[in-house]
Amino acid sequence: MRNSLTIFRKDFKQELRSKAAINSILLFAVVTLTAVSFSIGNFSISDDILAAMLWIIILFSSMSGFSHVFLKEEEANTADTLKLIAGPTDILLGKFLFNLVLLAAVLIIVTPLYVGVFNFEVKNFPLFLVTVALGAFGLSAAGTIVAALIAKASSRGALFSVMAFPILLPVLILGISATRIAFKSESLDILVPEIQALFAYCVIVSTAAIMLFDFIWND
């Protein structure tokens, strides 16, 4: 874990100086949010559509920035350097942590903005918080392993979206469903089936990522 934190700190420092991934995710999120708010105008929209739109913004924003994490190592020819000085699991966890923190930073800005722009009330706030947190975890875990998979391919940008979409789809569906409940439900229960399924998804994807990464990274 210590080595993962060292890799995370290195990536974080690089990101603070280049701002490549944060600009990509944040700009995408804010532009999409603005476009959606202008398109809807004064029409009243249901909680179901609000939940769906929020997760579409989160999904596509994360997809626009996650691939940077391995892409920049390949493009700068530092992937082999990293391979020689760190173990695969440390690299995966470090990169995952970076993507998670990046997405969390964007969500902290975009989610309150979304609630403010569309002026609605989140009735079950704890459920909403847990949904967003688990969703961010699942998106980061799956996004990181797909980013590692496509890093060596030639047409990486398009490939990331094509490969990530089916893997990230369960997060989108479960996230929308749980958020819809959080927007409508009067009870403060957070153990809804969607959250259990989202938790299971996170565990499965993380385990599969740790098991597969060695082969992806070294072959």
């Binding site: 290195k10 420092k13 690089q14 100086r17 280049s18 700068a76 020819n77 530092t78 082999d80 350097t81 020689l84």
Partner: peptide, 13 residues
Amino acid sequence: SLVGPYLQLYDEL
């Protein structure tokens, strides 16, 4: 350790 033309260091650091 290895020193080679294909191994680069981190330019931003």
